[in-house]
């Protein structure tokens, strides 16, 4: 209660997310090859390489959480390409609007940022729960975050339960028939495969649980201790 998530923590989260996506490029491509057009890994990687470049630059001109998320949104809408580009872009743009001018946010504010972002994705993509999309990972996570905020739980507990909810939501997509995007053309044949969009969305909450609950070391948050792998050599 009363814990704040700061701008350096958000930067650390987005760097961790970008690295995770780059690490999992082949896995995302493999999932997308089964029911989509096998481009989700490469598309997301292209965007995330740019996010890393931008956030690791000596001066990224992002002085508040809103402008940080907005810069990530602009990279995603202009370089990811598939439906994921405009959808993640909208998620970050809407979340950015809530965090405008904020250099830190509380758990209820974080929940509201993610809820607003989710609403943007749903407005844009017209997907609802069980359509076998990223919504199946994000919506349960947002609900878990809101419930935790309501119950005055700690940030660490809240983020852990959001991660768990996103994971279950992602795994549940295996059983679902796709109703959006290219996979929807497969109808019942899309059952048995995990949705690639739900998977890349799960990483948002996985990396959030790893980075947003603990304070970032002052100023040197870009030095990421835990992930020593170099993000994709160009």
């Amino acid at each position: 209660m009363g814990q704040e998530i700061t701008l350096p923590q958000f930067r650390r989260w987005l760097l961790a997310y970008a690295r995770r996506i780059i690490q999992e490029e082949d896995y995302l491509t493999e999932l997308d090859a089964a029911i989509g057009d096998a481009d989700h890994g490469a598309n997301m990687r292209r965007g995330m390489v740019k996010v890393l470049e931008r956030l690791q630059a000596p001066d990224d001109n992002c002085n508040d959480i809103g402008s940080l998320l907005r810069s990530v949104a602009m990279i995603m809408i202009s370089s990811v390409g598939g439906a994921a580009g405009p959808l993640y872009g909208t998620f970050f743009l809407r979340a950015a609007a809530v965090a405008n001018q904020h250099r830190s946010v509380t758990l209820p504010e974080l929940a509201r940022m993610f809820r607003t972002g989710l609403e943007g994705i749903q407005q844009r993509g017209k997907a609802v729960l069980e359509d076998k999309t990223m919504v199946d990972a994000i919506q349960p996570a947002v609900e878990a975050l809101e419930a935790a905020a309501e119950a005055n739980q700690s940030l660490a507990v809240a983020l852990a339960s959001a991660r768990q909810a996103a994971k279950l939501g992602m795994e549940h997509t295996v059983e679902l028939v796709a109703r959006k995007g290219r996979a929807s053309y497969l109808g019942p044949r899309s059952v048995g495969f995990q949705d690639p969009g739900a998977t890349s969305a799960y990483y948002l909450f996985e990396t959030a649980a790893e980075t947003l609950a603990t304070p970032a070391e002052n100023g040197s948050e870009q030095g990421q201790k835990s992930t020593s792998q170099e993000p994709g050599d160009p």
Partner: peptide, 8 residues
Amino acid sequence: HIGTDAVR
């Protein structure tokens, strides 16, 4: 590449 770019 194949894809669309909202900024463009």
